[in-house]
Design a protein around this nucleic acid. Structure first.
Lengths: 223, 223
DNA sequence: TAGATTGTTAATCGATTAACAATC
DNA sequence: TAGATTGTTAATCGATTAACAATC
């Protein structure tokens, strides 16, 4: 939410968020075997303005050939480099509920430069098991494990009411970035990076769009 | 991505995305038992500008008392009404991988007005099972099930390469809105609502923020 | 060449933030 | 009252889109 003021580089936040989109499209079957692709072609598929694509590419120094387009492998290589796919970052995940489980089983992360090394849960029953080569410990062993093998990123997939507590623990240990999947935003010092990924905002948008055409009456006034 | 041009009502898209945030905070333990809360107080917790909060509230006709703040129960009631929490919308989910499983087990949806009625998978082994009271069918039984008990929303949690095919099927059957969790954006006719929720954009932001301070050199130029 | 596309600069648009009057 | 807060209007800021020159 607070992205704007942290952006000292002049690279627009929405551009960064679009990069994985381009990457995924260029690597998908929809595009396989195309050596070159033009911005208008991508625009047609992704429903993004073609000058915006050109602009995004120029931000990250992808350059193309007039009349021909961009070399697909170039775009892929540069975006992957930009997103650090080849420099694995380690993470601890806390909260082995449904979402936490899904994330530690999500193999795509390894290709995307994210390596979840250990998972934690408050449930002592879960301690000791191993999923997808990721060992599970009780949350009270967090600090000990962190000092043995520190990580940069902490992933929070606990229920909202416990998210802040977990964040505090992570920060105390020295984690640099927190990826918070709980519905409640967490408070952190200025030097800590936070990214909130809550699916609720997606649901809110869908509901909103669905209702847009059947106007909502509220307090005798059309909203 | 294309939200802007679809927004005919003058209510900013970021406002809609913030509503679940406010709701979650106001219902969380951080705030329990407070009858009134002021915008500056919420601002401090959520790290959002307080005038933005005031503005968001005025958009959805939440009004407060000078010097006192807003009545917590009012905000909650109005946001819930706005987000349609009390008008359940039905959905089919396609793709019972890790994420799909997590979503059908995610009980919070029922409180948020989303009811996944049936799930589908391409794997015939999964057909017949029942998870969280949601019956699982093979994907080739989609059409039949839809005509028996139609739904407004289709949720796609299949791998990227199959997302478009599933979307086409949903649209053919008459689904109005598609919530696409795959990494590749899908193409749909103008009258169909799409919301893309890809966790990759969150990861991209984290990577970006982590690397911002150690400047990336690319092509002899600082990016 | 004619036409398509890149890539940059300028204009527009929308969201956030600042300023401030009204109010309790 | 003095001070805090709402709520609106204006200014700013950033992102998108339009325009167009350059190029192949």
């Amino acid at each position: 939410m607070n992205d704007r003021k942290n952006n000292t580089t002049g690279l627009p936040v929405p551009t960064i968020r679009r990069l994985p989109l381009y990457l995924s499209f260029l690597k998908s079957n929809k595009n396989k075997k195309r050596a070159f692709i033009s911005a208008p072609e991508i625009a047609r598929e992704l429903h993004i303005d073609s000058t915006q694509i050109t602009k995004d590419f120029s931000f990250i120094n992808v350059s193309g050939k007039t009349k021909v387009g961009y070399k697909t492998s170039d775009i892929i290589k540069i975006i992957e480099k930009f997103l650090g796919y080849h420099e694995p970052k380690k993470a601890f995940l806390v909260g082995l509920g449904n979402l936490g489980m899904a994330l530690i089983k999500y193999n795509a992360f390894s290709k995307e430069g994210l390596k979840i090394t250990i998972a934690f849960d408050i449930d002592t029953e879960k301690a000791g098991i191993e999923i997808n080569n990721i060992k599970v410990f009780n949350i009270n062993e967090f600090e000990e494990n962190f000092s043995k093998a520190p990580v940069e990123i902490g992933i929070i997939t606990v229920p909202s009411d416990h998210a802040q507590k977990v964040a505090d623990l992570m920060i105390k240990c020295g984690i640099k970035a927190i990826w918070n999947f709980s519905a409640t935003p967490i408070s952190v010092p200025d030097n800590i990076i936070v990214e909130n990924t809550s699916i609720d905002s997606g649901l809110a948008m869908i509901t909103w769009k669905l209702n847009k055409n059947k106007p909502l009456i509220y307090k005798n006034r059309i909203l």
